[in-house]
Each structure stands twice: as structure tokens, then as C-alpha cells.
Design a protein around this nucleic acid. Structure first.
Length: 326
DNA sequence: TACACGTGGCT
DNA sequence: TAGCCAAGTGT
């Protein structure tokens, strides 16, 4: 292995070997027992888990994944489902466009890959909703390929252990990619375990806010810890939420998921016409989303922008009766 | 490159 | 409590 010179302290083959051994041994005893890690889990199940886990915590994915796999155990099953059912099953996982793209991916798998999830990295990358990370993850975790997986957890572990900084930069750099590639064990089977183990270390121990360095198997080799755990160079910019278009889109989607008929557009866009007295033809359970929509007190213009955006994104459609799930 | 895109638990 | 954060992708 070529020494890595992208950090203040180059990673020698000896250090790399020590990291491989320490982190994979830690993984063997400390990893979470998740259903998509079961040796019997299908590539489709793993692909579904990877999409659901994008920007979403494991605890929230678990119940949705179990229900999803029960209803649509193969790509062909999901390909043929009604999109409105797919969006309702996605429930409150967030970023519902992922559900749309997952169904589109299922249709592409049915139409162009004989119904089988492709094991080829390039073919995976060509599917809707699958980018660099997910293509690599499926290649590795579903098919045991030797690919460099880089997610936010892995970036953080590398940033601390090797580069000695608290957090990685906003976007993935070429140097980071090269570091990750250079750190990969040559042996294919070990590389699979390495990818999985570093990710898990970042998720359970080397966390963003309060890392548990006393539990870390590589604390002795950690450049960040050795440097005295310096704080991040630049404080990450907070994610705005209250009053944003996203919040309003989310509220509108919640209403549409709970409705058993098209919702008149004015009820969504004109605040004073949204009522929660039970006279609106919405399914039971929709009251709460409606209350949320009301409490937002979002300007009419913003509500219209949200509805227009949802329609433009294919998450909703305009019908004679109003707005509905597609 | 930077921004838009959901949601809810945790500190 | 207000803000941070979570297995990213598409434009």
C-alpha cells in the first residue's frame, strides 16, 4: 500500500493494517443487528434500506422498512404499485421524492435488468435516486464487491483519525476520496467488512456531537485526539426549518396522505378556508396535519408555491376535485 | 459550487 | 429551547 500524504501524518502500511484490524474486530463485537445486515437479506432489501437511510436515522427507518418489504418484497412488486400507496407507505420518513425515485428505480430494474438489482456499480449509478454513495454501498453490502464507500460517518472518522480535524468539510474533496481509497484493504472480503465497520464506528462511537473516545478502538492512533480534540475550524451552518417552503410542503404532503379524496386547492392555499371541524372530506387522522398546516400561518403565496412545487416534482397532481397524491 | 429537499429526537 | 444532526441526490 502506498503511504498516504494527504494528512499531516502520513498513514503507513503498518498503521493502516492496525486500523483495519482494530476497527473490524471492534465491529465484530459492537455492531447493531439490523435486518438488512442479515445474510439472507436480498439485494433489493439492501437497496431499499440504503435509500431510506439517506439523511434519516436508523430508528425511524426500521418500522417503515419492515412494512415495505412485507408489501413489496421484489422490485417488480413495487414497480406495479399505485404511487399514492407508495407515498402513504413512505409515511413521515421525510424527503418523499425518495419514494418516487425508488419506485422509478424499481421500474427500471424490472424493464432493463430482468427484475434483478444490478451488481454493477455503473448500472446502479444510472438508476433514479442512486448516487455515488448508494451505488457503492449496494455494490459492497449486497454483492460483496470491492468499492470505496464514502458517507458522512466514514468522512468524519477519516477526518479525525487521519487528518486530525473535528469534522470534514462541507463537500467531499478529491483528497478525501483518495485517502478513503488508499485506506481500503486490498483483500476483497476484508474491504467489505472495513467499509461496514468504519461506517458503524462513525455512527456509534465517533459521532458528530459527543464522540465516545473512551470506547474507540483506534483512540491510540487518532490524530484529532492526539491534538487535544480541537473544535471545528468553522461552525456548521444551521438548517433552517421554521417558516421555510420545506415546512409548508411537508404539511401539505401530510394532508394529502391523510385525505381519502382530492383536496380542493383553496383549502390548501387559502388559510381561512381550511377547516378542521370534521366537515371536510378527509380521512380520520388528517385532523392533526390540518392543524399543523393552520398553525404554520404560512402566507397564501407560500402555500401556492408549495403546492406548485409538489405538482412539478410529481409528488401531487391536479385533478377536477383538487390536489391529490399521484 | 451551492442550494433545495422532510422529519423528529437529542442536547 | 433553539439549533444540531441523521447511511445523499439532483439541479
Amino acid at each position: 500500500m502506498t503511504p498516504v500524504h494527504t494528512s499531516p501524518t502520513p498513514v503507513t502500511p503498518e498503521v493502516a493494517h492496525r486500523l483495519h484490524r482494530a476497527i473490524t474486530e471492534w465491529y465484530a463485537g459492537a455492531h447493531r443487528d439490523l435486518p438488512w445486515r442479515d445474510p439472507d437479506c436480498s439485494p433489493w432489501g439492501i437497496l431499499v434500506s440504503e435509500i431510506m437511510l439517506q439523511q434519516t436515522p436508523v430508528v425511524r427507518v426500521l418500522p417503515r422498512w419492515l412494512e415495505w418489504m412485507r408489501r413489496w418484497p421484489t422490485p417488480a412488486d413495487l414497480a406495479e404499485a399505485a404511487t399514492a400507496d407508495v407515498l402513504r407507505a413512505w409515511d413521515r420518513l421525510g424527503y418523499p421524492r425518495r419514494a418516487l425515485r425508488l419506485q422509478a428505480a424499481a421500474q427500471a430494474i424490472r424493464d432493463h435488468h430482468g427484475g434483478q438489482v444490478p451488481d454493477d456499480h455503473a448500472a446502479l449509478l444510472a438508476l433514479p435516486g442512486i448516487g455515488s454513495y448508494t451505488a457503492a454501498a449496494v455494490t459492497v453490502f449486497a454483492f460483496g464487491g470491492r468499492q470505496t464507500v464514502i458517507d458522512t460517518n466514514i468522512r468524519r472518522v477519516h477526518a479525525r483519525v487521519v487528518s486530525g480535524v473535528a469534522l470534514p468539510g462541507k463537500s467531499l474533496s478529491a483528497a478525501e476520496t483518495r485517502l478513503a481509497e488508499d485506506l481500503m484493504p486490498e483483500d476483497r472480503k476484508l474491504s467489505v467488512r472495513w467499509n461496514q465497520a468504519v461506517m458503524e464506528l462513525g455512527a456509534l462511537v465517533c459521532t458528530a456531537r459527543s464522540p465516545r473516545c473512551h470506547e474507540c478502538p483506534v483512540s491510540a492512533d487518532c490524530a484529532w485526539l492526539a491534538a487535544g480534540s480541537p473544535p471545528p475550524a468553522v461552525a456548521p451552518r444551521g438548517q433552517a426549518w421554521h417558516g421555510t417552503d420545506r415546512q409548508v410542503r411537508g404539511a401539505v404532503m401530510a394532508v394529502l396522505r391523510g385525505a381519502d379524496a382530492a383536496v380542493p386547492e383553496d383549502w390548501l392555499t387559502v388559510a381561512h378556508e381550511i377547516r378542521i371541524d370534521g366537515s371536510v372530506p378527509l380521512a380520520r387522522g388528517a385532523e392533526k396535519p390540518l392543524e399543523k398546516l393552520l398553525s404554520l400561518d404560512a402566507p397564501e403565496q407560500q402555500r401556492r408555491r408549495a403546492v406548485d412545487g409538489l405538482v412539478a416534482d410529481g409528488l401531487a397532481v391536479r385533478t377536477d376535485g383538487g390536489i391529490a397524491l399521484p
